[in-house]
Amino acid sequence: MKKIILSALLFLPLFLLSACGTALPGEEVMQNLVNRSADLESYHQFVALTTTTTKEDLNGVTAVNEQYTTADATLFPEEKTGYGKRIDKNSDYPATKSEFYVTPEVGYNRTDDGDWTAYATPDVPLASLQVYPLETFIELSQIIEEYGTLELEGDEYLLSFSGSDDAMNKEINYLFQTLPSEQTDYEIAIRLDAETFYLTAFSYHSTVTRADQKTIVTTELTGEFDLYDQAKKLKTVPDFDAVDTTAETADSSF
């Protein structure tokens, strides 16, 4: 019992300093972000990803292709469960809407209000629902803290970076599993709640210029996170045998 009380007292000044408007060192802010996020029971996220490729052919004609994804997910990390919806669109094809319901034993997915399909490995639909897991954005925050700036703005910490950096570029390409490019410019802003240290919102923009291929690739990644330890599970387990059954939810995130 004494060890538990002592541990609580050691962490108490950190929260008091932040609540009183005094910024903590970046290393402590990142450690608090990691520690608090590791024990999450639930959270809700909305993530949008847009990739635009502009390419000029040998005749000087410019072609533009755009792909985007939006995902609205309610997740329970410890149980590896979740539910939500996702929309994928390629400028050359119609949009596709997918719905997900994932349990520890099996994951379900249906596309454009069709039949539910069961996956023996729940990790597959769970990964598809999230686009990127929360851990990815935590790692991105750590990268930006190292190469960018950290400021306390009111009741939020703002992590930001503008410009290019070869070392940071390599880390980000590794994180997102993208092809490296020497000419990449970034505009990144990540916001954390100054009291809880939870990630609340982020905005990520990158521009990759491949002069030898006459190609420019821009990526926009934005998101919002909320309902930390407050997200609700489905009221009832849906009947996945019925084609016209929609999973009933207990909150407005679906």
Rank of each mutant, 00 (worst) to 15 (best):
M1A: 14
S7W: 10
L9R: 04
F11A: 11
F15D: 00
L16Y: 03
G21K: 05
A23N: 01
L24V: 04
G26H: 04
E27G: 12
V29A: 02
V29T: 07
Q31C: 08
V34I: 13
N35F: 06
L40C: 07
L40F: 06
A48P: 02
T54I: 12
L58Y: 12
L58T: 14
L58K: 15
N59V: 06
T62L: 05
T69W: 05
D72P: 08
T74V: 10
K85T: 12
K85F: 03
I87F: 01
S91D: 05
D92S: 15
D92Q: 13
P94I: 07
T96E: 13
T103R: 06
E105Y: 10
G107R: 05
G107T: 09
R110F: 10
D112H: 03
G114P: 12
W116H: 04
A118M: 14
D123V: 10
V124T: 15
P125I: 10
P125W: 09
Q130C: 06
Y132D: 08
L134H: 08
E135S: 15
I138P: 03
E139K: 15
E139S: 13
I143S: 00
E145R: 15
T149I: 06
L150V: 13
G154M: 07
D155I: 11
L159W: 05
S160Q: 12
F161Y: 13
S162P: 02
G163K: 07
D166G: 01
A167Q: 15
K170F: 02
E171W: 05
I172P: 00
N173L: 09
N173P: 08
N173T: 10
A189Y: 04
L192S: 01
L192V: 02
D193R: 00
A194T: 00
A194Q: 00
E195Q: 13
L199G: 00
T200K: 09
S203C: 04
Y204G: 00
V208M: 09
Q213A: 10
Q213P: 01
V217K: 03
T218I: 03
T222E: 03
L227M: 12
T236I: 10
V237K: 14
D239T: 02
A242T: 15
D244V: 11
S253F: 14
F254W: 15
